[in-house]
Design a protein around this nucleic acid. Structure first.
Lengths: 355, 355
DNA sequence: TTGTAAGCGTTATCAG
DNA sequence: CTGATAACGCTTACAA
């Protein structure tokens, strides 16, 4: 018994949805009254209001947001454009955005640019056509200009950038203090007694990698160490690339005693290469990465890394959008929110003995 | 020079968006003509059509999908409900869905149920109110009935389940052959010569875990091995839980020589516990997990695992939805798509010596 | 090939 | 406190 629990009753093919007009007819009042009852307007008798709400529940009334949005000229849809959604970082940021947004009654439409400006342009068009209330975007790797975002502003749609932004443009943005985080990580390595700290740098046209590199340089300077160009490697931040860079670093006449990478995959590649050569981590070479990916706690030794506060970033981005909406008309120009990263120190950088 | 690249020209506050009516007025034709030109209708002179398109481009006309959807009664919005979006699995599935959807001209609205039926119910309401063309859902952990999905069908909105579905209900769904995958993994362990294979089982009210357990039992049976209840552990699939289960298994008078876990985090926990006790993997205990998470390639030894074809699942789910839309009216009842998982054999289960 | 007009489900304005 | 009516931007019979 109890074999088939909640099977659909056979007798219901898509019955036409019930509208406000239906409620009005049924109750013998005007649509205006229905609208007011449903939207909690003040000019409405408590009795009628209750009656409306009751009937709405009974008939399973489902408001049509499209119609409302069309009429009001503003939807409760929020557009989000990310390079891709796989991988911890963007998934977490989107998680943060969605959570904050839905609390405020917004639904989020997600678009992937696949690291391609052309697609990003299409995404913008799509979102504008969907009449979104705002757009949150982290630009693709090869986005070099702002033309397609001009259109967004022309339509009067609030625009917020997060994480990856275009340098030199004054826009609303939420970013991580990448420079500070990199500085912190590098200082930590220096404090462990390392003196030849190498850096795996990402593509420098992206603000995030440029800033991480700068933070690395800052730390060296504060320790009075002159930067050595041969210790700064161009790296595309993949596992393979990290290993290749590490191999190259080991070829140097005077190889590094520590490596700070602008990303975690690359530092893992470096770790694997070191282990394959029998070089001890952290005793011979100490390591630190950036992003605090899950893999940092799985690697052996566990990897020191800078956490990016992904979820906070999502929340902050939404809040900034909301501020823009609420400040409608109030002419305030640009807002930047800067989040403070947090260094997670793990075994890969902790030298047990003295410096 | 070239300091400020693409700064907004100071002279443009949200100019009101241009509509079809504007184009019509400007060109001195009717809105019908505009509509036809824009929607590539056949009854339209090539000359007028070109003129319209040119003007549209010039005036930066942006179609209003909301209005079109309202009129047509069908939007190009697709609703997706997942328990959460962080973590590899759902992020990848969503990636697959979004990629397929956007190719077909749909935008996807993402909702998280946070593993909570109440929230899931709200999500359904939200999506219906947004007039989505369809809903794709992977149910939350504590979803036990279908009432809130009845409403979806009543509205005539195509509904597709993926991965997590409710057993016993006949619905459109895309699932993994979890049973087959588990069978494959367990057989592999048996073929390596293991004879006491333990199983870390997930919450059994979820189809996926129930099926994985069954696949495990199938494999034992095909090897003529009677299942030993003391080797089957209830596990909530976390790292900690996996370690705890492993510890318990080691207490047995006759401990296992292999473990198949229904999830990767748990098997990693088991691995860490074994290593901490100096027990060799795979020589003393061979390990295999499920999901093929990124961490499986980072662990040492690397972990054997069953890949879930996340992205294919997303694509398949979208395709199933599309089929439903295209078959509008055609009364075909339920469709199930079953994807074949793939076993990735790695060091954690490969015994070098003979059995 | 083109135009007219009605209507999708709301909300807002103005009268009662 | 309530009601009639216009309007949001677009599609689509139907008519010319």
């Amino acid at each position: 018994m109890a074999a088939r629990r909640n099977l659909p009753k056979p007798t219901d093919a898509a019955s036409s949805p019930v509208s406000m007009a239906d409620l009005a007819r049924e109750l013998g009042v005007s649509m205006t009254t229905i609208s007011r009852a449903l939207s909690d307007h003040h000019s409405i008798g408590p009795a009628t209001k209750q009656a409306v709400l009751k009937l709405a529940k009974k008939l399973n009334y489902q408001p049509n947001h499209l119609a409302a949005a069309l009429r009001k000229g503003k939807s409760k849809l929020l557009g989000v454009i990310v390079p891709y959604i796989e991988g911890r970082f963007f998934a977490s940021v989107v998680h943060g955005i969605e959570t904050a947004a839905s609390k405020a009654g917004y639904s989020v439409i997600i678009c992937q640019s696949s690291e391609d400006v052309a697609q990003e342009r299409k995404n913008v068009e799509t979102l504008l056509s969907a009449q979104v209330a705002g757009i949150l975007v982290s630009v693709s790797r090869n986005t070099l200009d702002f033309r397609h975002f001009e259109k967004v502003r022309k339509h009067g749609v609030p625009l917020v950038f997060f994480d990856r932004i275009l340098e030199g443009d004054n826009v609303n943005a939420v970013v991580l203090n990448d420079r500070g985080g990199a500085n912190q990580a590098t200082r930590h390595l220096l404090e462990q007694g390392c003196r030849r700290v190498a850096h795996l740098a990402g593509p420098l046209h992206l603000n995030i990698y440029k800033n991480r590199r700068q933070g690395y340089l800052d730390a060296l300077e504060s320790f009075g160490i002159a930067p050595d160009e041969s210790l700064i490697m161009d790296c595309d931040m993949t596992l393979e690339s990290g290993a290749a860079c590490m191999a190259q670093l080991l070829e140097l006449p005077n190889p590094p005693d520590a490596v700070f990478s602008a990303g975690d995959s690359a530092i893992l590649g470096a770790l694997q290469l070191l282990k394959s050569r029998g070089i001890r981590v952290p005793q011979d070479v100490a390591l630190a990465g950036f992003s605090n990916e899950a893999l940092t706690s799985v690697a052996e030794p566990m990897l020191t890394s800078v956490d990016q506060r992904c979820e906070e970033m999502g929340q902050a981005a939404f809040r900034l959008f909301k501020d823009l909406v609420d400040a409608e008309g109030t002419a305030f120009s640009q807002r930047q929110v800067v989040l403070q990263p947090q260094l997670f120190v793990r075994a890969s950088s902790l030298r047990t003995g003295p410096a």
